[in-house]
Every structure is written in structure tokens, then in C-alpha cells.
Measured scan of single mutants.
Amino acid sequence: KYLVLALYDYQEKSPREVTMKKGDILTLLNSTNKDWWKVEVNGRQGFVPAAYVKYL
């Protein structure tokens, strides 16, 4: 498993997404889509914009 760092705040806009705050450390679950990565944060799984996170 990889960890990624939230570069920006992101507010979920659909039930498939998750909210994150700048500085959050997220567990990367799937990065096959170049635009949306599946992550786990605070016990929830969902998608965030790939451009908003970077590998640690």
C-alpha cells in the first residue's frame, strides 16, 4: 500500500468521493484512473482528484 499527501482541501461532491484536508495522509487504494484516485481517509473509502494528492 502507498501513502499519499493531500496538497489541498477537497470537499466531496458525490457519495463516491471523500473529503480531505490539506496535509492529510491518505492510504492509496487504486490509481489506475489518471484523474481520480481511490483512497481511504478517516475510515472512509472514496475518490479524490489525482492532482490534489502526491506520493509520500
Rank of each mutant, 00 (worst) to 15 (best):
G46I: 03
V53P: 00
E12M: 13
L28P: 01
A50C: 06
D35N: 12
K13E: 09
A6H: 02
E12N: 08
A51T: 11
Y55H: 13
Y52P: 00
R16T: 12
D35F: 14
Y8W: 11
V41H: 14
L29Y: 04
N33S: 11
D24P: 00
Y8I: 10
P49S: 02
L5N: 03
G46E: 01
K54A: 15
P49M: 04
N33E: 10
G46M: 04
P49A: 02
V53F: 05
R44M: 09
E17H: 06
V48N: 00
D35W: 12
K54T: 15
V4N: 01
P15E: 12
D24V: 04
Q45G: 06
S31W: 15
A6L: 03
G43Q: 07
W36V: 03
M20K: 00
Q45S: 12
S14K: 07
R16Y: 15
D9E: 05
L26S: 02
L56I: 14
F47V: 07
W37P: 02
W37F: 09
L26F: 06
V48C: 03
G46T: 02
K38E: 14
N30S: 13
E40W: 06
N33T: 07
P49H: 02
Q11T: 15
K13R: 14
T27K: 12
R16G: 15
L3K: 11
V53Q: 00
V41W: 06
D9H: 05
S14T: 14
V4R: 02
V39M: 01
G23V: 01
L56M: 11
V39G: 00
L28H: 02
G43W: 03
N33R: 09
L26P: 01
Y10E: 02
I25C: 06
G23F: 04
T32G: 11
P49Q: 02
N33H: 11
N30I: 08
Y52N: 05
K1F: 14
P49V: 03
F47W: 15
R16E: 14
L29G: 01
L29V: 12
S31K: 12
L5E: 15
V41I: 15
L26M: 14
G46N: 01
I25M: 08
S14A: 09
M20S: 01
K13S: 10
K1H: 14
K22I: 07
K1Y: 14
G23M: 03
R16N: 15
Y10H: 05
S31H: 10
D24M: 11
Y2M: 13
Q11I: 14
Q45A: 13
R16C: 15
K34A: 13
E12V: 06
Y10I: 02
A50N: 03
T32D: 15
S14F: 06
L29T: 05
D9K: 02
V18Q: 03
E12C: 10
G23A: 03
Y55M: 15
T32L: 10
E40Y: 06
D35H: 15
P15I: 10
W37M: 05
Q11P: 07
Y8K: 13
A50I: 04
V18S: 02
K38I: 14
Q11D: 15
S14P: 05
L7N: 04
Y52H: 08
P49R: 03
Y8T: 10
K38V: 13
P49C: 04
W37E: 01
A50V: 07
Q45I: 14
Y55C: 15
P49G: 02
I25W: 05
Q11L: 13
Y2D: 12
E17P: 04
L56D: 07
W36T: 02
P49W: 03
D9G: 06
L5W: 06
Y10A: 01
Q11W: 12
V48A: 03
L28M: 05
N33V: 05
K22S: 07
L56Y: 13
A6I: 04
A51K: 14
K13W: 04
E17V: 05
A50F: 02
Y10R: 02
K21I: 10
L56H: 09
E17M: 05
M20P: 01
R16F: 14
K54I: 15
T27L: 15
V4K: 01
L56K: 06
R16A: 13
Y2R: 13
D24E: 11
N42I: 04
Y2G: 13
N42G: 12
L56C: 11
V4Y: 11
F47S: 03
A51P: 08
L3H: 11
T19N: 07
K1V: 13
N42R: 11
P15K: 11
D35Y: 14
N42P: 05
V39R: 00
L28G: 01
F47H: 05
V53G: 01
M20I: 15
K13Y: 05
E12A: 15
T27N: 10
S31D: 14
L7V: 09
Y52V: 07
V41G: 08
K38C: 13
N42M: 09
K34Y: 08
K38L: 15
K22Q: 10
V39H: 00
G23Q: 02
V39W: 00
L26R: 00
E17G: 12
R44V: 09
V18M: 10
W36L: 04
A6Q: 01
A51E: 13
D24A: 07
T27D: 06
T19D: 04
Q45C: 10
K54E: 14
V4P: 01
D24S: 07
G43P: 01
Y8M: 14
W37Q: 02
E40C: 11
V4E: 00
V53N: 00
V48T: 01
N42Y: 08
V39I: 08
N42S: 10
I25L: 09
Y52D: 05
V41N: 12
G23T: 02
Y8D: 09
E12H: 09
L28K: 01
K38S: 08
F47E: 04
I25A: 04
A50E: 03
K38D: 04
V4A: 10
K21S: 10
E12Y: 05
K34N: 11
N33P: 05
K22N: 04
M20Y: 02
I25N: 03
L5I: 15
A51R: 14
P49T: 02
K1A: 13
K34S: 13
W36E: 04
P49F: 03
K38N: 07
Q45R: 12
K54W: 09
K13G: 08
G23N: 07
T19W: 04
E17I: 04
G23L: 02
M20E: 00
D35S: 11
L28R: 01
L28E: 00
W37Y: 10
L28C: 07
N30Y: 07
G43A: 05
T32V: 11
L26Q: 00
A51C: 12
W36G: 00
N33I: 06
L3W: 12
V18T: 06
N33M: 09
V18L: 14
V39P: 00
R44C: 06
G43K: 06
G43V: 02
D24F: 04
P15L: 09
A6T: 04
L56W: 12
K34W: 07
K38M: 15
Y52Q: 07
V18D: 00
Y52C: 09
Y2A: 14
F47R: 03
D9R: 01
S14H: 11
S31R: 12
L3E: 08
A6F: 03
K54P: 01
L5T: 10
Y52R: 07
I25K: 05
T32C: 14
N33F: 07
A50S: 14
Q11M: 14
G23I: 01
D35V: 12
Y2S: 13
R16Q: 15
K38A: 11
T27M: 13
K13C: 10
Y10M: 01
W36K: 02
N30K: 06
T27C: 11
F47A: 03
L5P: 00
E17T: 08
V41T: 12
T27H: 12
V39Q: 00
V18P: 01
Q45W: 08
T27A: 10
E40D: 11
E12S: 15
G46S: 01
V39N: 01
K34H: 11
W36N: 02
K13F: 05
L56E: 07
D9M: 03
I25Q: 06
G23W: 05
P49E: 01
M20L: 09
L56G: 05
